[in-house]
Simulated assay, not measured.
Amino acid sequence: MNLFFHVGRYFTLLSRAFSRPEKHRIYFRKLFVEIEQLGLDSVGIVAIISIFMGGIITLQVAYNMSNPLFPSYLIGLGNRDTLILEFSSTIMALIMAGKIGSNITSEIGSMRVTEQIDSLEIMGINSASYLILPKTLAVVFIFPFLFVLSVFFGLIGGLIVGPAVGAVTAPDYINGIQYLFTPYYVTFSMIKTLFFGFLVASVPAYFGYFVDGGAFEVGAASTRAVVNTNILILVFDLILTQLLF
């Protein structure tokens, strides 16, 4: 019963958030601010994590393909497909849920407990649309960009680590990342990132918008938001994989 209550309230909040804005210019300006704060500020951590994970995946694939019957270029292929199909879309979304999601919950939750949201409502402003719509659109817009960056830096990480430790030569690795490339894999992962971006923004916004109490409750809401967002990402990853493949 509690689950149905939260689901109903979540979709009710979304219907308010995606209603027609009062002043498009203000929302347009706020959208670019959110893109910078939520998306562009995440480029650094995405690059660092992807470089290391690309190197780690390359080493793991190399050590598990030590059989001389397997051509070494398959190491680059394995790293490429792992990054495109799962890491740079799903795992990166889980990481961003902790960074971006907690940020959204704490910001909106702090406005709720300090009665700033109530003040917006008194002034006749649709607080749900003003606070949630720009954040959601910003995250949905920036997630495909972060996905592409993650794949790129992951491949660079494999190119650095693989030859450095003698697991694979640079020409074989480059040949592997080009071998049997399937463009649909990118399309599939792009679709996933759009869904995940929407979840990473809207679910934490819901928990922040309806937080009740003080600073402690805001922190607890941030934790619940990240946990629930991660669970939904994994559920939708399973559903989308079944549907799109």
Rank of each mutant, 00 (worst) to 15 (best):
L199Y: 05
S127D: 12
L133C: 02
A221I: 08
N230S: 14
F11N: 06
F28S: 10
A170N: 00
F198V: 07
A97I: 09
I156C: 01
K23M: 07
Y173K: 01
L159S: 12
G54L: 05
A205H: 03
N67R: 13
P163D: 08
E34L: 13
Q60S: 07
I84M: 03
G219S: 07
T82P: 09
E107W: 10
R9W: 04
Y10P: 10
F32M: 08
A93D: 10
N230H: 04
I132M: 06
I125F: 01
I122V: 15
F5E: 11
G158S: 13
F5I: 14
V226A: 01
R25W: 03
K192Q: 11
L85H: 06
D118V: 05
L146G: 08
Y173I: 09
P71T: 08
S150V: 06
R80C: 07
G39A: 01
F198C: 10
N126C: 14
E36A: 13
L38F: 11
T82A: 13
F143M: 15
R224T: 01
L146C: 04
F195S: 15
N2L: 14
F11A: 04
G76T: 11
L194T: 08
G78F: 13
S102V: 07
Q242Y: 15
A97F: 09
P163L: 01
S89V: 08
L234E: 13
P183M: 01
S88D: 12
L14V: 07
S66M: 12
V226M: 06
L131Y: 04
V33N: 08
F198G: 14
V226D: 05
D172Q: 12
G208C: 10
S89M: 02
L69V: 11
Q60C: 03
Y185V: 01
Y179R: 00
L199T: 09
P134S: 02
E115C: 08
G39M: 04
A225P: 11
F11Q: 09
S72R: 15
K23R: 12
R29Y: 06
L159I: 03
V200I: 15
G124R: 01
S127T: 09
S102E: 06
G76P: 04
S119K: 03
A97S: 14
A215S: 15
F147H: 05
E86N: 14
L13F: 03
S150R: 03
I191R: 00
Y184D: 15
I191L: 15
R112A: 07
I117Q: 02
Y73F: 15
F195P: 05
K135W: 11
D172G: 00
G197R: 01
I57W: 02
T90W: 05
S189V: 10
L199H: 04
V33L: 13
F28Y: 09
N67D: 15
L74N: 07
D81H: 09
S150H: 02
Q60A: 02
Q37L: 15
L31G: 00
K135Y: 14
V165C: 06
F210R: 11
S19L: 10
I132D: 04
G98F: 09
F196A: 09
F152G: 06
A170L: 08
L244I: 14
G78A: 10
I231F: 12
A138C: 10
I84V: 13
F195Q: 03
R16P: 05
P183L: 00
V227M: 06
I174H: 00
T223P: 07
V140G: 02
V218H: 01
T12Y: 03
L240K: 00
T241P: 06
L137R: 00
V227L: 10
V113F: 08
F210W: 01
L243C: 08
